[in-house]
Amino acid sequence: MPHDLATAQAELVEAKAALETLTERVANGDEDVTPAQLQAQKELISFAELRVEAAQRTAARMREDERVSLANAAKTAATGLINGTGMDDIADALGTAVTALSALAGLVEARNAELDEVAVSLADLDDDLKVSQAADVWASRRYGIWGDRTRVNVDGVGKADRLDLGDLTVAVVLAALTGTANGREAITRHRQRVAGLPNLAVRKLVDDIPEFAAELRVSSQQFAAADARGKADISEQGRRPLPEAAGVEPERRDG
């Protein structure tokens, strides 16, 4: 038996060429070629054709074995993705990121609120000084402090700027993702989602991936604390607390 299909096919070509040579010799009057030789060569061709067919079947079986092996390896890897802890780890990281960003937002809002209080005090002081002494716009500077809601300055100490939470969230995304091609592609998609229908993008994650839904849904307390627009966005994003979590008995379905 030939070792492979190519060898079998080469032997068949060789056998057919030999028969053609014998046939041509007979046609040219060569009396040394016997009928037995012609018959034997034809039989050899038939045998070579069988060897080609056998090699083709063997090759087909080998290809199928390779396909089965490849499919089994892919199935094993996919099963690991489905049943393994990888998604749990990602979901945990997602929850950590949401919590961290929420904490950042809270700290920024608290700092800006303090800045607003200082700015209001300075505005009152400036107004009082301008009325009584016709002072300039930064009348409070004579006391070593001046500013407004965007920045407050203290002589000999420094300045406190208002923080833009939008800029900070952009900085978080870029700082985390800029270093790789995949990260930069994610940044591009991030921009597209934000400019398009971001609530629906979040809802797709919540609807399609249970592990993510558990991390992205808000608590009953968080939903209650949100303003009207926040409640509407949370609802559109599919992040409302589940009825059980909200202390509401889920609807019963008869049948």
Rank of each mutant, 00 (worst) to 15 (best):
M1E: 11
H3V: 14
A6E: 13
A10R: 12
A15N: 03
A17C: 02
A18H: 13
L19Q: 10
L19F: 02
L22I: 06
R25V: 01
V26N: 01
A27F: 02
N28G: 08
D30G: 01
A36D: 13
L38E: 05
Q39S: 09
K42A: 11
K42M: 10
I45R: 00
A48G: 00
E49I: 06
L50Y: 15
L50D: 14
R51P: 00
V52F: 00
V52N: 00
A54H: 03
A60R: 06
A60L: 01
D65P: 01
D65I: 10
A74Y: 07
A74L: 12
K75W: 08
K75L: 15
T79Y: 12
T79L: 15
T79C: 02
N83H: 06
D88Q: 13
D89I: 12
I90Y: 11
A91F: 06
D92K: 13
A93C: 07
G95E: 05
V98G: 08
L101G: 06
A105P: 01
A110K: 13
E114S: 13
A119R: 14
L122C: 07
L129G: 07
L129A: 14
L129E: 15
L129P: 06
A134T: 06
V137T: 15
V137E: 15
W138D: 15
S140G: 09
W146A: 07
G147T: 09
V152W: 13
D155R: 12
G156I: 11
G156E: 12
V157G: 01
K159V: 13
A160H: 14
A160L: 15
A160Q: 15
R162L: 09
D164G: 02
G166E: 10
V173Q: 11
A175S: 11
T178G: 02
T180N: 12
R184C: 01
A195S: 05
G196E: 02
P198Q: 00
A201I: 04
V202G: 03
K204T: 11
L205Q: 14
V206P: 03
D207S: 05
D208N: 07
D208P: 00
E211H: 05
F212M: 01
R217P: 05
V218Y: 02
F223S: 00
A224V: 09
D227T: 01
K231L: 07
K231C: 06
S235D: 14
R239D: 10
R239T: 13
P241Y: 06
V248G: 02
P250F: 12
